[in-house]
Design a protein around this nucleic acid. Structure first.
Lengths: 221, 221
DNA sequence: GAGCGCATCAGGGTGACCCCTGAAAGGGGG
DNA sequence: CCCCCTTTCAGGGGTCACCCTGATGCGCTC
Protein backbone atom coordinates (compact mmCIF):
# COMPACT_ATOMS: atom_id res chain seq x y z
CA UNK A 1 0.00 0.00 0.00
CA UNK A 2 1.40 3.33 -1.03
CA UNK A 3 1.65 6.26 1.31
CA UNK A 4 -1.38 8.43 0.58
CA UNK A 5 0.55 11.62 1.29
CA UNK A 6 3.03 10.91 -1.47
CA UNK A 7 1.64 11.06 -5.02
CA UNK A 8 1.59 7.81 -6.91
CA UNK A 9 4.14 7.45 -9.67
CA UNK A 10 2.50 6.03 -12.78
CA UNK A 11 3.59 5.13 -16.30
CA UNK A 12 1.36 5.06 -19.34
CA UNK A 13 1.71 2.95 -22.46
CA UNK A 14 -0.66 3.58 -25.33
CA UNK A 15 -0.05 3.83 -29.03
CA UNK A 16 -2.61 6.59 -29.39
CA UNK A 17 -1.18 9.95 -28.51
CA UNK A 18 -4.57 11.44 -27.81
CA UNK A 19 -5.43 8.78 -25.29
CA UNK A 20 -2.01 9.06 -23.63
CA UNK A 21 -2.58 12.74 -23.19
CA UNK A 22 -6.11 12.22 -21.95
CA UNK A 23 -5.11 9.59 -19.42
CA UNK A 24 -2.24 11.74 -18.32
CA UNK A 25 -4.41 14.78 -17.82
CA UNK A 26 -7.07 12.89 -15.91
CA UNK A 27 -4.55 11.22 -13.63
CA UNK A 28 -2.71 14.42 -12.91
CA UNK A 29 -6.02 16.06 -12.15
CA UNK A 30 -6.49 13.34 -9.55
CA UNK A 31 -3.17 13.99 -7.82
CA UNK A 32 -1.26 11.21 -9.54
CA UNK A 33 2.15 11.81 -10.99
CA UNK A 34 2.70 10.60 -14.55
CA UNK A 35 6.41 9.95 -14.89
CA UNK A 36 6.37 8.07 -18.18
CA UNK A 37 4.20 8.20 -21.27
CA UNK A 38 5.25 5.95 -24.12
CA UNK A 39 3.80 4.37 -27.20
CA UNK A 40 4.43 0.68 -26.61
CA UNK A 41 4.37 -1.76 -23.75
CA UNK A 42 7.98 -2.64 -24.44
CA UNK A 43 9.15 0.88 -23.90
CA UNK A 44 7.44 0.95 -20.55
CA UNK A 45 9.00 -2.37 -19.63
CA UNK A 46 12.42 -0.90 -20.27
CA UNK A 47 11.96 1.89 -17.76
CA UNK A 48 9.65 0.38 -15.17
CA UNK A 49 12.49 -0.43 -12.75
CA UNK A 50 14.47 2.76 -12.97
CA UNK A 51 11.46 4.98 -12.54
CA UNK A 52 10.22 3.24 -9.40
CA UNK A 53 6.63 3.13 -10.67
CA UNK A 54 3.69 2.44 -8.41
CA UNK A 55 1.45 1.52 -11.27
CA UNK A 56 1.21 1.26 -15.05
CA UNK A 57 -1.71 2.01 -17.33
CA UNK A 58 -1.69 -0.07 -20.50
CA UNK A 59 -3.97 0.16 -23.48
CA UNK A 60 -4.85 -3.25 -24.81
CA UNK A 61 -4.63 -2.43 -28.43
CA UNK A 62 -7.26 -4.62 -29.98
CA UNK A 63 -7.53 -3.48 -33.57
CA UNK A 64 -6.45 -5.20 -35.63
CA UNK A 65 -3.06 -6.84 -35.43
CA UNK A 66 -0.88 -6.50 -32.32
CA UNK A 67 -3.64 -8.16 -30.46
CA UNK A 68 -2.40 -8.22 -26.94
CA UNK A 69 0.49 -5.88 -26.48
CA UNK A 70 -0.85 -4.71 -23.15
CA UNK A 71 -1.31 -8.17 -21.73
CA UNK A 72 2.06 -9.33 -22.93
CA UNK A 73 3.63 -6.38 -21.16
CA UNK A 74 1.71 -7.23 -18.01
CA UNK A 75 2.81 -10.85 -18.07
CA UNK A 76 6.40 -9.89 -18.72
CA UNK A 77 6.36 -7.53 -15.78
CA UNK A 78 5.13 -10.31 -13.55
CA UNK A 79 7.71 -12.65 -15.01
CA UNK A 80 10.38 -10.11 -14.11
CA UNK A 81 9.15 -10.10 -10.53
CA UNK A 82 7.56 -6.71 -10.67
CA UNK A 83 4.55 -6.35 -8.40
CA UNK A 84 3.42 -2.86 -9.32
CA UNK A 85 -0.20 -2.20 -10.08
CA UNK A 86 -1.17 -2.67 -13.70
CA UNK A 87 -4.38 -1.32 -15.14
CA UNK A 88 -5.34 -2.42 -18.63
CA UNK A 89 -7.68 -0.32 -20.68
CA UNK A 90 -9.66 -1.77 -23.53
CA UNK A 91 -12.37 -0.86 -25.95
CA UNK A 92 -14.31 -4.05 -25.73
CA UNK A 93 -15.37 -6.49 -23.06
CA UNK A 94 -13.38 -9.58 -23.96
CA UNK A 95 -13.65 -12.21 -21.24
CA UNK A 96 -10.66 -14.16 -22.52
CA UNK A 97 -8.33 -11.30 -21.85
CA UNK A 98 -10.01 -10.49 -18.59
CA UNK A 99 -9.24 -14.02 -17.46
CA UNK A 100 -5.63 -13.66 -18.52
CA UNK A 101 -5.42 -10.42 -16.61
CA UNK A 102 -6.86 -11.92 -13.48
CA UNK A 103 -4.54 -14.84 -13.91
CA UNK A 104 -1.64 -12.45 -13.43
CA UNK A 105 -2.59 -12.08 -9.77
CA UNK A 106 -3.51 -9.17 -7.57
CA UNK A 107 -2.71 -5.59 -8.31
CA UNK A 108 -4.16 -5.85 -11.80
CA UNK A 109 -7.23 -4.34 -13.39
CA UNK A 110 -9.26 -4.50 -16.59
CA UNK A 111 -11.32 -1.44 -17.42
CA UNK A 112 -13.35 -0.43 -20.45
CA UNK A 113 -12.58 2.97 -21.85
CA UNK A 114 -16.24 3.81 -22.23
CA UNK A 115 -16.65 3.13 -18.54
CA UNK A 116 -14.45 6.10 -17.79
CA UNK A 117 -17.17 8.70 -18.00
CA UNK A 118 -15.72 10.74 -15.17
CA UNK A 119 -12.15 11.22 -14.03
CA UNK A 120 -12.63 9.62 -10.64
CA UNK A 121 -13.32 6.25 -12.23
CA UNK A 122 -9.86 6.09 -13.71
CA UNK A 123 -8.12 7.67 -10.75
CA UNK A 124 -9.69 5.26 -8.31
CA UNK A 125 -8.91 2.29 -10.51
CA UNK A 126 -5.24 3.26 -10.65
CA UNK A 127 -5.16 3.82 -6.89
CA UNK A 128 -6.74 0.42 -6.36
CA UNK A 129 -4.29 -1.55 -8.45
CA UNK A 130 -1.37 0.44 -7.04
CA UNK A 131 -2.36 -0.68 -3.56
CA UNK A 132 -2.59 -4.31 -4.64
CA UNK A 133 -6.32 -4.46 -5.26
CA UNK A 134 -8.10 -5.78 -8.32
CA UNK A 135 -10.36 -3.93 -10.70
CA UNK A 136 -12.65 -5.65 -13.14
CA UNK A 137 -15.15 -3.83 -15.24
CA UNK A 138 -18.73 -4.75 -14.38
CA UNK A 139 -19.55 -5.30 -18.01
CA UNK A 140 -16.74 -7.80 -18.35
CA UNK A 141 -18.01 -9.68 -15.32
CA UNK A 142 -21.44 -9.65 -16.89
CA UNK A 143 -19.94 -11.09 -20.06
CA UNK A 144 -18.22 -13.85 -18.10
CA UNK A 145 -21.39 -14.86 -16.32
CA UNK A 146 -23.38 -14.66 -19.50
CA UNK A 147 -20.76 -16.73 -21.22
CA UNK A 148 -21.19 -19.73 -18.97
CA UNK A 149 -24.93 -19.43 -19.43
CA UNK A 150 -24.61 -19.13 -23.20
CA UNK A 151 -22.33 -22.15 -23.17
CA UNK A 152 -25.19 -24.23 -21.89
CA UNK A 153 -26.55 -25.23 -25.32
CA UNK A 154 -23.03 -26.09 -26.43
CA UNK A 155 -22.29 -28.15 -23.35
CA UNK A 156 -25.41 -30.18 -24.08
CA UNK A 157 -23.73 -31.47 -27.23
CA UNK A 158 -22.00 -34.81 -27.06
CA UNK A 159 -18.30 -35.09 -27.74
CA UNK A 160 -18.85 -36.41 -31.23
CA UNK A 161 -21.31 -33.67 -32.00
CA UNK A 162 -18.87 -30.99 -30.90
CA UNK A 163 -16.21 -32.36 -33.22
CA UNK A 164 -18.72 -32.29 -36.07
CA UNK A 165 -19.73 -28.74 -35.18
CA UNK A 166 -16.10 -27.72 -35.25
CA UNK A 167 -15.75 -28.88 -38.84
CA UNK A 168 -19.07 -27.28 -39.73
CA UNK A 169 -17.75 -23.97 -38.45
CA UNK A 170 -14.75 -24.39 -40.72
CA UNK A 171 -17.04 -24.62 -43.72
CA UNK A 172 -16.76 -28.36 -44.29
CA UNK A 173 -19.58 -30.01 -46.20
CA UNK A 174 -21.29 -33.03 -44.71
CA UNK A 175 -19.34 -35.21 -47.11
CA UNK A 176 -16.11 -33.55 -46.11
CA UNK A 177 -16.85 -34.10 -42.47
CA UNK A 178 -17.62 -37.72 -43.18
CA UNK A 179 -14.28 -38.22 -44.93
CA UNK A 180 -12.35 -36.36 -42.27
CA UNK A 181 -13.85 -38.30 -39.40
CA UNK A 182 -14.08 -41.60 -41.32
CA UNK A 183 -17.84 -41.71 -41.01
CA UNK A 184 -20.74 -42.44 -43.29
CA UNK A 185 -22.56 -39.51 -44.82
CA UNK A 186 -25.75 -40.56 -43.10
CA UNK A 187 -24.04 -40.56 -39.74
CA UNK A 188 -22.84 -37.04 -40.24
CA UNK A 189 -26.31 -35.97 -41.27
CA UNK A 190 -27.70 -37.45 -38.10
CA UNK A 191 -25.17 -35.59 -36.00
CA UNK A 192 -25.84 -32.37 -37.83
CA UNK A 193 -29.54 -32.74 -37.30
CA UNK A 194 -29.23 -33.29 -33.58
CA UNK A 195 -26.78 -30.41 -33.33
CA UNK A 196 -29.20 -28.08 -35.05
CA UNK A 197 -31.98 -29.32 -32.79
CA UNK A 198 -29.98 -28.78 -29.62
CA UNK A 199 -28.93 -25.32 -30.72
CA UNK A 200 -32.51 -24.37 -31.55
CA UNK A 201 -31.74 -23.83 -35.20
CA UNK A 202 -34.00 -26.48 -36.66
CA UNK A 203 -36.77 -24.20 -37.79
CA UNK A 204 -35.10 -21.89 -40.27
CA UNK A 205 -36.72 -21.82 -43.66
CA UNK A 206 -33.68 -20.34 -45.33
CA UNK A 207 -31.22 -22.77 -46.64
CA UNK A 208 -28.01 -21.23 -45.51
CA UNK A 209 -29.03 -21.22 -41.93
CA UNK A 210 -26.15 -23.49 -41.10
CA UNK A 211 -23.28 -21.33 -42.21
CA UNK A 212 -25.00 -18.19 -41.12
CA UNK A 213 -25.82 -19.59 -37.73
CA UNK A 214 -22.38 -20.97 -37.11
CA UNK A 215 -20.75 -17.78 -38.25
CA UNK A 216 -23.03 -15.85 -35.97
CA UNK A 217 -22.11 -18.13 -33.11
CA UNK A 218 -18.44 -17.67 -33.79
CA UNK A 219 -18.85 -13.95 -34.16
CA UNK A 220 -20.56 -13.60 -30.83
CA UNK A 221 -18.03 -15.37 -28.72
CA UNK B 1 -9.41 32.92 -42.21
CA UNK B 2 -8.84 33.56 -38.55
CA UNK B 3 -6.45 36.11 -37.21
CA UNK B 4 -3.29 34.24 -36.28
CA UNK B 5 -2.61 36.48 -33.30
CA UNK B 6 -5.90 35.55 -31.67
CA UNK B 7 -6.18 31.96 -30.43
CA UNK B 8 -8.75 29.81 -32.18
CA UNK B 9 -11.87 28.96 -30.23
CA UNK B 10 -12.67 25.30 -30.54
CA UNK B 11 -15.33 22.93 -29.23
CA UNK B 12 -14.93 19.20 -28.74
CA UNK B 13 -17.56 16.49 -28.86
CA UNK B 14 -16.58 12.97 -27.96
CA UNK B 15 -18.32 10.40 -25.83
CA UNK B 16 -15.02 9.16 -24.43
CA UNK B 17 -13.83 11.32 -21.58
CA UNK B 18 -10.24 10.23 -22.00
CA UNK B 19 -10.16 11.28 -25.63
CA UNK B 20 -11.85 14.57 -24.85
CA UNK B 21 -9.18 15.31 -22.32
CA UNK B 22 -6.44 14.19 -24.66
CA UNK B 23 -7.68 16.30 -27.55
CA UNK B 24 -8.14 19.23 -25.24
CA UNK B 25 -4.64 18.96 -23.85
CA UNK B 26 -3.03 18.63 -27.25
CA UNK B 27 -4.93 21.56 -28.70
CA UNK B 28 -4.18 23.79 -25.73
CA UNK B 29 -0.56 22.83 -26.04
CA UNK B 30 -0.76 24.13 -29.59
CA UNK B 31 -2.12 27.52 -28.60
CA UNK B 32 -5.76 26.71 -29.33
CA UNK B 33 -8.46 27.60 -26.88
CA UNK B 34 -10.92 24.85 -26.00
CA UNK B 35 -14.11 26.56 -24.96
CA UNK B 36 -16.41 23.55 -24.97
CA UNK B 37 -15.95 19.87 -24.28
CA UNK B 38 -19.07 17.76 -24.35
CA UNK B 39 -20.11 14.16 -24.74
CA UNK B 40 -22.43 14.31 -27.74
CA UNK B 41 -22.69 16.11 -31.02
CA UNK B 42 -26.07 17.44 -30.03
CA UNK B 43 -24.70 19.21 -27.00
CA UNK B 44 -22.15 20.93 -29.15
CA UNK B 45 -24.81 21.93 -31.65
CA UNK B 46 -26.71 23.63 -28.87
CA UNK B 47 -23.83 25.92 -27.98
CA UNK B 48 -22.03 26.38 -31.26
CA UNK B 49 -23.58 29.78 -31.94
CA UNK B 50 -23.31 31.35 -28.51
CA UNK B 51 -19.70 30.40 -28.09
CA UNK B 52 -18.58 31.85 -31.40
CA UNK B 53 -16.53 28.80 -32.29
CA UNK B 54 -13.90 28.80 -35.00
CA UNK B 55 -13.89 25.04 -35.28
CA UNK B 56 -15.32 21.84 -33.82
CA UNK B 57 -13.63 18.49 -33.29
CA UNK B 58 -16.05 15.57 -33.48
CA UNK B 59 -15.40 11.95 -32.78
CA UNK B 60 -17.23 9.72 -35.25
CA UNK B 61 -18.28 7.11 -32.82
CA UNK B 62 -18.23 3.96 -34.90
CA UNK B 63 -18.78 1.14 -32.43
CA UNK B 64 -21.35 -0.19 -32.53
CA UNK B 65 -24.67 1.63 -32.60
CA UNK B 66 -24.86 5.42 -32.88
CA UNK B 67 -23.09 5.00 -36.14
CA UNK B 68 -22.57 8.49 -37.28
CA UNK B 69 -23.21 10.93 -34.55
CA UNK B 70 -20.31 13.06 -35.66
CA UNK B 71 -21.36 13.29 -39.27
CA UNK B 72 -24.95 14.01 -38.36
CA UNK B 73 -23.74 16.87 -36.21
CA UNK B 74 -21.61 18.16 -39.08
CA UNK B 75 -24.49 18.03 -41.53
CA UNK B 76 -26.82 19.74 -39.09
CA UNK B 77 -24.31 22.52 -38.57
CA UNK B 78 -24.16 23.08 -42.30
CA UNK B 79 -27.91 22.93 -42.50
CA UNK B 80 -28.06 25.66 -39.86
CA UNK B 81 -25.79 27.81 -41.99
CA UNK B 82 -22.76 27.46 -39.79
CA UNK B 83 -19.50 27.64 -41.70
CA UNK B 84 -17.05 26.92 -38.91
CA UNK B 85 -14.34 24.38 -39.44
CA UNK B 86 -15.30 20.84 -38.50
CA UNK B 87 -12.74 18.11 -37.97
CA UNK B 88 -14.01 14.55 -37.63
CA UNK B 89 -11.90 11.98 -35.88
CA UNK B 90 -12.38 8.31 -36.50
CA UNK B 91 -10.83 4.99 -35.68
CA UNK B 92 -11.12 3.47 -39.07
CA UNK B 93 -10.69 4.54 -42.65
CA UNK B 94 -14.23 4.35 -43.96
CA UNK B 95 -14.46 5.89 -47.41
CA UNK B 96 -18.25 6.19 -47.27
CA UNK B 97 -18.08 8.59 -44.40
CA UNK B 98 -15.13 10.40 -45.86
CA UNK B 99 -17.24 11.08 -48.93
CA UNK B 100 -20.09 12.35 -46.79
CA UNK B 101 -17.68 14.62 -44.99
CA UNK B 102 -16.26 16.02 -48.20
CA UNK B 103 -19.78 16.45 -49.45
CA UNK B 104 -20.37 18.94 -46.65
CA UNK B 105 -18.05 21.39 -48.39
CA UNK B 106 -14.88 23.17 -47.44
CA UNK B 107 -13.73 23.70 -43.91
CA UNK B 108 -14.16 20.05 -43.06
CA UNK B 109 -11.69 17.31 -42.29
CA UNK B 110 -11.53 13.58 -41.72
CA UNK B 111 -8.62 12.32 -39.66
CA UNK B 112 -7.74 8.92 -38.23
CA UNK B 113 -6.91 8.88 -34.56
CA UNK B 114 -3.93 6.65 -35.12
CA UNK B 115 -2.61 9.23 -37.51
CA UNK B 116 -2.22 11.64 -34.64
CA UNK B 117 1.16 10.42 -33.49
CA UNK B 118 2.33 13.87 -32.59
CA UNK B 119 0.44 16.92 -31.37
CA UNK B 120 1.20 19.06 -34.40
CA UNK B 121 -0.81 16.77 -36.64
CA UNK B 122 -3.99 17.51 -34.79
CA UNK B 123 -3.23 21.16 -34.21
CA UNK B 124 -2.51 21.78 -37.87
CA UNK B 125 -5.61 19.92 -38.94
CA UNK B 126 -7.77 22.07 -36.70
CA UNK B 127 -6.09 25.22 -37.93
CA UNK B 128 -6.64 24.12 -41.51
CA UNK B 129 -10.36 23.47 -41.20
CA UNK B 130 -10.81 26.64 -39.13
CA UNK B 131 -9.37 28.64 -42.02
CA UNK B 132 -11.67 26.98 -44.50
CA UNK B 133 -9.28 24.34 -45.77
CA UNK B 134 -9.91 20.62 -46.10
CA UNK B 135 -8.13 17.77 -44.40
CA UNK B 136 -8.37 14.19 -45.51
CA UNK B 137 -6.33 11.43 -44.00
CA UNK B 138 -3.87 9.93 -46.50
CA UNK B 139 -4.99 6.44 -45.59
CA UNK B 140 -8.58 7.31 -46.37
CA UNK B 141 -7.52 8.66 -49.74
CA UNK B 142 -5.60 5.48 -50.31
CA UNK B 143 -8.71 3.52 -49.46
CA UNK B 144 -10.74 5.57 -51.90
CA UNK B 145 -8.31 5.01 -54.71
CA UNK B 146 -7.94 1.38 -53.86
CA UNK B 147 -11.68 1.11 -53.69
CA UNK B 148 -12.21 2.16 -57.23
CA UNK B 149 -9.60 -0.33 -58.26
CA UNK B 150 -11.09 -3.07 -56.10
CA UNK B 151 -14.46 -2.05 -57.45
CA UNK B 152 -13.37 -3.23 -60.86
CA UNK B 153 -15.00 -6.64 -60.57
CA UNK B 154 -18.04 -5.01 -58.94
CA UNK B 155 -18.26 -2.25 -61.49
CA UNK B 156 -18.40 -4.87 -64.21
CA UNK B 157 -21.75 -5.89 -62.82
CA UNK B 158 -24.81 -4.39 -64.39
CA UNK B 159 -27.18 -2.31 -62.35
CA UNK B 160 -29.66 -5.12 -61.99
CA UNK B 161 -26.96 -7.51 -60.95
CA UNK B 162 -25.75 -5.16 -58.28
CA UNK B 163 -29.21 -4.91 -56.78
CA UNK B 164 -29.41 -8.69 -56.75
CA UNK B 165 -26.00 -8.92 -55.12
CA UNK B 166 -27.11 -6.52 -52.46
CA UNK B 167 -29.97 -8.78 -51.46
CA UNK B 168 -27.68 -11.81 -51.65
CA UNK B 169 -25.39 -10.15 -49.15
CA UNK B 170 -28.34 -9.65 -46.85
CA UNK B 171 -28.94 -13.38 -46.85
CA UNK B 172 -31.95 -13.42 -49.11
CA UNK B 173 -32.72 -16.68 -50.90
CA UNK B 174 -33.20 -16.66 -54.63
CA UNK B 175 -36.91 -16.92 -54.09
CA UNK B 176 -36.85 -14.05 -51.65
CA UNK B 177 -34.94 -11.92 -54.12
CA UNK B 178 -37.45 -12.79 -56.81
CA UNK B 179 -40.38 -11.72 -54.61
CA UNK B 180 -38.64 -8.56 -53.49
CA UNK B 181 -37.75 -7.44 -56.99
CA UNK B 182 -40.93 -8.83 -58.58
CA UNK B 183 -38.97 -11.19 -60.80
CA UNK B 184 -39.25 -14.80 -61.78
CA UNK B 185 -37.11 -17.32 -59.97
CA UNK B 186 -35.33 -18.22 -63.15
CA UNK B 187 -34.42 -14.63 -63.79
CA UNK B 188 -32.84 -14.32 -60.40
CA UNK B 189 -30.93 -17.52 -60.99
CA UNK B 190 -29.61 -16.14 -64.24
CA UNK B 191 -28.45 -12.96 -62.54
CA UNK B 192 -26.86 -14.91 -59.73
CA UNK B 193 -25.00 -17.09 -62.18
CA UNK B 194 -23.58 -14.15 -64.09
CA UNK B 195 -22.68 -12.42 -60.85
CA UNK B 196 -20.77 -15.45 -59.66
CA UNK B 197 -19.03 -15.65 -63.02
CA UNK B 198 -18.01 -12.03 -63.02
CA UNK B 199 -16.74 -12.23 -59.48
CA UNK B 200 -14.72 -15.36 -60.24
CA UNK B 201 -16.64 -17.44 -57.77
CA UNK B 202 -18.03 -19.98 -60.18
CA UNK B 203 -15.63 -22.77 -59.37
CA UNK B 204 -16.29 -23.55 -55.77
CA UNK B 205 -17.19 -27.14 -55.10
CA UNK B 206 -18.65 -26.37 -51.69
CA UNK B 207 -22.25 -25.51 -51.59
CA UNK B 208 -22.19 -22.55 -49.27
CA UNK B 209 -19.77 -20.70 -51.42
CA UNK B 210 -22.30 -17.98 -51.97
CA UNK B 211 -22.86 -16.84 -48.43
CA UNK B 212 -19.27 -17.42 -47.52
CA UNK B 213 -17.99 -15.51 -50.49
CA UNK B 214 -20.32 -12.62 -50.01
CA UNK B 215 -19.54 -12.44 -46.34
CA UNK B 216 -15.86 -12.47 -47.17
CA UNK B 217 -16.36 -9.67 -49.62
CA UNK B 218 -18.22 -7.63 -47.07
CA UNK B 219 -15.63 -8.33 -44.41
CA UNK B 220 -12.82 -7.16 -46.62
CA UNK B 221 -14.23 -3.79 -47.44
C1' DG C 1 -31.68 -57.78 -17.41
C1' DA C 2 -34.19 -53.70 -18.84
C1' DG C 3 -33.76 -49.08 -19.88
C1' DC C 4 -31.16 -45.19 -21.66
C1' DG C 5 -27.89 -42.40 -24.05
C1' DC C 6 -24.60 -42.48 -27.68
C1' DA C 7 -22.72 -43.50 -32.15
C1' DT C 8 -23.25 -45.66 -36.24
C1' DC C 9 -25.83 -46.24 -40.54
C1' DA C 10 -30.12 -46.89 -44.22
C1' DG C 11 -34.01 -45.46 -47.17
C1' DG C 12 -36.89 -42.02 -48.87
C1' DG C 13 -38.34 -37.45 -49.59
C1' DT C 14 -38.31 -32.06 -50.19
C1' DG C 15 -36.30 -27.95 -51.40
C1' DA C 16 -32.59 -24.82 -52.56
C1' DC C 17 -28.78 -23.70 -55.20
C1' DC C 18 -26.29 -24.17 -59.31
C1' DC C 19 -25.07 -25.21 -64.28
C1' DC C 20 -26.25 -25.35 -69.35
C1' DT C 21 -28.87 -24.21 -73.41
C1' DG C 22 -32.07 -21.32 -75.43
C1' DA C 23 -35.06 -17.39 -76.35
C1' DA C 24 -37.64 -13.02 -76.56
C1' DA C 25 -37.96 -8.02 -75.95
C1' DG C 26 -35.81 -3.49 -75.60
C1' DG C 27 -31.92 0.05 -76.10
C1' DG C 28 -27.80 1.96 -78.05
C1' DG C 29 -24.03 2.29 -81.32
C1' DG C 30 -21.52 1.39 -85.52
C1' DC D 1 -30.28 -1.99 -90.15
C1' DC D 2 -27.89 -5.17 -87.57
C1' DC D 3 -25.22 -6.38 -83.62
C1' DC D 4 -24.33 -6.20 -78.78
C1' DC D 5 -25.77 -5.66 -74.15
C1' DT D 6 -29.25 -5.98 -70.70
C1' DT D 7 -33.16 -7.93 -68.74
C1' DT D 8 -36.48 -11.14 -68.61
C1' DC D 9 -37.81 -16.03 -68.43
C1' DA D 10 -38.17 -21.55 -69.52
C1' DG D 11 -36.75 -26.39 -69.39
C1' DG D 12 -33.88 -29.90 -67.65
C1' DG D 13 -30.41 -31.91 -64.88
C1' DG D 14 -27.11 -32.36 -61.00
C1' DT D 15 -25.54 -31.82 -56.11
C1' DC D 16 -26.26 -30.96 -51.51
C1' DA D 17 -28.44 -29.83 -47.14
C1' DC D 18 -32.06 -31.04 -44.44
C1' DC D 19 -36.11 -33.77 -42.54
C1' DC D 20 -38.42 -38.16 -41.03
C1' DT D 21 -38.63 -42.82 -39.61
C1' DG D 22 -36.29 -46.43 -38.45
C1' DA D 23 -32.36 -49.95 -37.07
C1' DT D 24 -28.07 -51.90 -34.89
C1' DG D 25 -24.49 -52.31 -31.37
C1' DC D 26 -22.20 -50.58 -27.22
C1' DG D 27 -21.68 -49.11 -22.60
C1' DC D 28 -23.66 -47.52 -18.42
C1' DT D 29 -27.03 -47.48 -14.66
C1' DC D 30 -30.77 -48.81 -11.80
Amino acid sequence: MADPTVPLRVGIADDALLLREGISKVLEGGGIEVVASVGTGQELLDVVDELDLDAAVLDIRMPPSFRDEGIVALEQMRANGSTIGVLLLSMYATPEYALRVMGAGSGTGYLLKERVSEPQTLVRAVETVASGGSVVDPEVVEQLVHRTRADDPLSRLTERERSVLELMAQGYSNGGIAQTLFLGLKTVETHVRSILQKLDLEESPEHHRRVLAVLTLLGER
